[in-house]
């Protein structure tokens, strides 16, 4: 029952345990290859010379950027990337702000209808998007927000996930800090910005990145709002996908560009991004 017992067990099966470790590596290597191969093939195809697109050689050689040039010539990809960045950043910032204020209320006070209001947030998970899309579409068209980026951003500004995760963190917030700030005679608004936000900065950053990546990859809502235009990369990419006779090189180049910002972010902040996603799943 103690660590000593654990050590005994380890030693008695020393040979078997080494085998097991090797087996573990093997399983993970196979899974990693399966997971990464499509991504690798995407970039490999996009970097082949136009004549080599159908080649099955694993290494794309000679390298060529021609498909990228082609993609840029066919569509205004730069503008799409900028638009998508605007949508992702504003959505994430808005969701963080709205979520932080709501979570602050839930964690900091006891008030009437608290349970009911909390259930309102949890309940959004039970309302599938497809059930609300028609009335929302009609409202957007009345507000003249169809085919605008604002129409993509505004309806998504309240993220129940953000509220619930921030509330969880705020409930674990050191009470002494708040107590001290209150003794200083600061208002709750002041405490939020001078005590809570600076302390929660890593949490806010991780959640912000999660929300921004989600917004960047979002397809359903932009497809509905921006019906006739292809203002964000996901839709631009869709317009590249013909039903038959695809031009695979430029298509892969566009798909590669669509994913590139997220992957760059991932390379820099790998651990934080994985943790944010897994934790969002566990809570």
């Amino acid at each position: 029952m103690t660590t000593e017992g654990a050590v005994d067990v380890e030693q008695s099966v020393g040979e078997g345990s080494r085998l097991r470790t090797v087996g573990g590596h093997a399983v993970l290597i196979v899974l990693s290859v399966v997971c990464v191969f499509p991504i690798y093939w995407l970039y490999a195809t996009s970097l082949r010379a136009p004549g080599d697109v159908y080649s099955l050689s694993v290494l794309p050689w000679p390298l060529s950027l021609e498909h990228y040039a082609d993609a840029f010539a066919k569509a205004d990809i730069l503008r799409m990337l900028i638009n998508t960045t605007i949508v992702a950043v504003l959505t994430a910032l808005g969701q963080l702000l709205v979520g932080l204020l709501a979570a602050y209320a839930f964690a900091g006070w006891k008030f009437r209808f608290q349970k009911l209001l909390y259930l309102m947030f949890v309940g959004t998970w039970l309302v599938p998007f497809q059930v609300t899309m028609m009335p929302n579409y009609v409202l957007l068209s009345r507000l003249d927000l169809l085919n605008t980026l604002a129409g993509v951003i505004v309806p998504t500004l309240c993220s129940a996930l953000g509220v619930l995760m921030l509330r969880q963190h705020l409930l674990g917030f050191p009470k002494e800090l708040l107590e001290a700030a209150r003794m200083d005679g600061r208002s709750s608004w002041g405490i939020l910005w001078t005590v809570v936000v600076p302390t929660l900065r890593p949490v806010l950053a991780a959640l912000g990145i999660l929300l921004a990546i989600t917004a960047w990859n979002e397809y359903f809502w932009p497809a509905l709002v921006l019906q006739r235009s292809n203002d964000v990369v996901q839709l631009g990419l869709r317009s590249f996908m013909g039903t038959e006779g695809n031009d695979w090189g430029p298509l892969m180049a566009t798909a590669g560009l669509t994913c590139l910002p997220v992957f760059l972010l991932y390379m820099v902040l790998q651990r934080h991004i994985v943790n944010a996603f897994v934790r969002s799943g566990l809570k």
Partner: peptide, 17 residues
């Protein structure tokens, strides 16, 4: 890091590849 990567691929890009 490797097995998690597909989660970050946009669904439309996944569809394309």
């Amino acid at each position: 890091a490797l097995v998690f990567a597909p989660m970050l691929v946009a669904p439309v890009a996944g569809a394309a590849v």
